[in-house]
Design a protein around this nucleic acid. Sequence first.
DNA 1: TGTTAGCACTCTAAGGTAAAGAGTGCTAAT
DNA 2: ATTAGCACTCTTTACCTTAGAGTGCTAACA
Lengths: 354, 354
Amino acid sequence: MTLDQRQTDVLFTIVRCYIQSGLPVGSRTVARKSSLNLSPASIRNIMADLAEENFIEQPHTSAGRIPSTNGFRFYLDSKLDMEILPAEVEEKIKSALVRTGPDLSQTLSQASKLLSSISNQISLVITPSQQNIRWKHIDFIQLRAGLVMSILVMEGGMVQNKIITVDSDITADDLIKFSNYLNEHYKGKTLLQVRANIFSQIKRARKRFNNLYQEALRLARESFEPDNNRQVYVDGTHYLFQDSEFTDLPKMREVFRLLEERSKLLKILDQTLESEGLSILLGQEQDWQELSDYTVISSPYSLKGDNIGLVSIIGPTRMNYSRVIPAVDLTARILSQLFNEIFEHNTIKNMPKT
Amino acid sequence: MTLDQRQTDVLFTIVRCYIQSGLPVGSRTVARKSSLNLSPASIRNIMADLAEENFIEQPHTSAGRIPSTNGFRFYLDSKLDMEILPAEVEEKIKSALVRTGPDLSQTLSQASKLLSSISNQISLVITPSQQNIRWKHIDFIQLRAGLVMSILVMEGGMVQNKIITVDSDITADDLIKFSNYLNEHYKGKTLLQVRANIFSQIKRARKRFNNLYQEALRLARESFEPDNNRQVYVDGTHYLFQDSEFTDLPKMREVFRLLEERSKLLKILDQTLESEGLSILLGQEQDWQELSDYTVISSPYSLKGDNIGLVSIIGPTRMNYSRVIPAVDLTARILSQLFNEIFEHNTIKNMPKT
DNA sequence: TGTTAGCACTCTAAGGTAAAGAGTGCTAAT
DNA sequence: ATTAGCACTCTTTACCTTAGAGTGCTAACA
C-alpha cells in the first residue's frame, strides 16, 4: 500500500502530534500543524482515506485519530526527521566509556546507563555472545581440592570465568599441563569450533584412555560451554512511569515481569541480532502480549564485522523516535568502535590509572 | 506508651484488616473480627483512645481508621501471629541453593529469586562486603602486555577478580613472583589488614626501591582494593504493581529509581548490616522521601559470626508481614548455614556435576 | 462503672442529568 | 478540487442528589 505525498504528510503529522500529546488528533490540529495549507475539511477527507487503508484509527466516533500499528510502521520505515545528536553527546559517551577502563562488564554497564539517560527510556545492553569469538588463552586456578576456576580470555579483551568441580585427585600441576595443551592446540579458534572438537575427542576417548585424560576433557568442555548466564544490563526502568496517565498498569507490570525473565527477553532480542543495523519491533506486530503498546529498538554492536551483542531500548509505542533512534544507533556504533580499536591495537593506549 | 490488652487487641485487628483490604477499618468490622466480644460502640471508645495516643488515624471524619506509622511500629515490634513456613519450603530453598553449585554469584542470585517468589515482594540480596573476610590465595594472569587480571580467593568460597593495567615491562614471570610473595606473606589476613599493610609499605618504598617493586606494590594495592561494585540482586519488581489501586504512581516510580541508584540503596541497607537478626525500617520513620509508604525488611547473613551480606525485601507498608518476615528470616538463615558449611568442611560434598 | 442502644451528624461514593466542547461526515457552494 | 456550514455523535465536566458508611455523643442499662 503506497501513500501519495499529501497522505504521507497528514499521516506523519498525526503521528508526531500523537507522540507528543498521547491524545487523538483532530483535523483542525492537523490543518494547523502540517505544512499543507488545507482546511480541516480537506484534511478530514484525507483522513477518511487513511482510515480506509488502515493507517489510522478512531477510538470513538467523535474523537480524533490515532496512528494504527500500520501507521507507526509506515512512519518508522521511512525514518525521516531524526534529530542529529550534537557532537558533544558523542564525545561524552565515548570518553565516559573509555574511562571505565579495560573491564568489559563495566563498559557495558556504563553504556546502558548513558543510553537510558540520553533516551529517557529503559535501556538494555546485552553482553557479547561469545560463540563466534576467537579465544586467546585459558588458565585454570585451583580454588581448593576438587574446585577449579577457569579463565578464558577472548579477542576484544573479553574475559569469561567459571567455577568447575573436578575430580579431587587432580593437582595443580595437572591443571598447568591441561592449560598448556589447550593453549597450544586450540588458540585462535572460536569457542564454537573448540567445543565441537572437544566433543568429538570425548567420544573417541571413551574407554580408550585413563581417568585423568577423561577428566581433563570434561574440564575443558565445561570451560568452553556456552555462557548460559549472558548478562543483560537494564537501566532507566523508572522512565516507564513518564506519561503514565496514558498507560495502563497491567501492561506496565508485564514489562517489568519480562525484564526479569531473562531467557524470554533474550529470545525476543536475539531476533534482531543478525539484522544489519537498527531494527524496530512493534509489540503489536509480534505476538507478545507482554509488549503490546511497547516498542523495542535495537542495534547490534560488532567485532570484526560480526554482530556479537546488542544495544536496545524499550519504550511505549508512542515514544519520541526522533530522539531515541539516533541514541541507540550512536551507542551501538561507539561500542563497536571501542571493541575494534581494542582488537586492532591489541593494547590499550592512554588508559588512565583507575 | 503502653497499651492494655484490649487496646492492643483492637489495634492489631485494625492492622490486620487494613493489611488485608487496604481500606480504612470501621468499628463494626473490628467488633466482628476481634476476639473481644464488644459492641461497635465500645470499640469506638477504645479507638478514640488509640487515636488520642497516635496509634491510628482517620482519613476523614466519616471514615474508618488506618494504623499510623506508630501503630505499625507497635505491631511489628511485638511480632505476633507470624506464619510458620512449612518444612517443605525450607527444603525447597535449601536444595535449590545447593543445586546452584559452587558459584557464589549464582547462589545469591537464585536466593533472591526464591525470596521474591515466596514473599511476593521485591527482593534484594547483597553480595558480601569482603572487607572483613580472610583471603586464601591470589593469582595474577597476564591478559596481554600491560593488562593483568587478579583473582582473589576468599574463605567461604568467594572469588573476586579485577582487571588491572600495569607497566607493560612486567612479565609473566614477574607476576608469578609477585603472587608467590603475596600468598606467602599475607595469607589468612583480612582484606582490610592486607590493604593497610600494603599502604604502609608503599610509603616506605617510595624512592628507596626500583620501579619494578613499586609497580608490584601498586598491583597488589589495586587487587585488594575494596570492591566498589558490590552487587545487589533484585527480583520481583513487578510485585510492586499488586494492589496498585491503592498506590500512587509517583511513589512507585521513586522506588524504581532508588533500586537503580545502587550507592543510595546500599547506604540505606547498610544501616541494618550491623544489627542482630531481622530489622524492619518503615519508610516514614526514616527521612527517605523515596520510601514513604514502603517498608524495608532485612536480615543479615553471616560467616563465622560476622555479618557479611544482607537479604531484604521492599514492599508497601501495608504488606503481609506474617508471611514476609519468616521468608526473609529463613532465606538469610539458610544462606548463613550454607556459607558456614562450605567454610567448615572447606570442600563441597555431593555437588552435582553441572 | 463499664457497656450498649439510639440517634443526629458528617463525609464520601455513586448515580443521574445537563451543558459544553471536540470532532466528525455530509452537502452544497465556490 | 476545496471549503464553509451544519447537524450529529460522543465524551468530558460539572453539579446535584441520594445512599451508605462511620463517627461521637447521650442516655439507658447491667
